[in-house]
Amino acid sequence: MTDVLNVRGVTKSYGGHPALKGVELKVKPGSCFGLLGPNGAGKSTLMKLLTGIIDADQGVIELFGLNIRKELPAIHRLIGYVPQDITLYEKLSGRQNLTFFGQMHGIRGSELKKRIAHVLEAVGLTERAGDEIASYSGGMKRRINIAAALLHQPKLVIMDEPTVGIDPQSRNHIFEMIRKLQREGVTILYSTHYMEEVEALCDEVAIIDHGQIVSQGGLRELLELHAVKAVYAEAAGVSEPPVVEGVVRATQEGSGWVLECDHPLKVMSELSAQWADDGVIVKALELMQPTLDSVFLKLTGTTLRD
């Protein structure tokens, strides 16, 4: 099956400053693909390249097998773009904004009315559709911002940090919408710098830092490959880090210790025996769940800057 998105060797510079350096990316149909990276990593630049707003200096971008340089109009019919900014006309109502964006995609008449009603219901704003956008809350604006990208029923929805600055309720609403879209077969490309959003939504992830994709794969695969393996150990009266063979680093966390290692089960077994011999009362000795945080830390050497 053709990849929805295939990016090969893409570079982009602004005034001599490289924003993207040889980006390679593949997105499978029907997936929710997370693009994770800190602010300034190159996510928005990549998103603008994928929507044809800007051109790459080098490399090839194909969407649905179509080359973006040659077949942009056809690509525009297949993709929906949700920009990072809320791009709505504040003085127009929600419905007027949706009518405008629908018509910009060539939808007219009763079909447009039907689709507007559908997306308004999907984002839970049917009752507020006649009100000016200026009267909406931040979360409601975000939801209409997404709805505007769905009117032409795209096969791929590109979302650039769509939940910035909103309340948890609206965030959950948006997550539900994305899951529903995915169930309907729509491919989602979701850019964010929130780890928990990627973990909650995405089945595939690419980590981008300093304009480069540092890793890409399934979420489980990435966690398996790159997450730091660790054991959490806590015992009464133990104030020094436990010395166990195979532990590469011990960091205090609360009243216990995080022991990073390659073979956590072996470390747990040895430490359990050691503490039993010493007559120490064990409070906690458990495997730590791998997280994207630790994957990111391992791959980039830094934590995600919020």
Binding site: I53, R77, Y81, P83, T87, F101, M104, H105
Partner: peptide
């Protein structure tokens, strides 16, 4: 930018 992501 958003409008440039349409067939406009």
């Amino acid at each position: 930018s958003r409008l440039q992501g349409t067939p406009m």
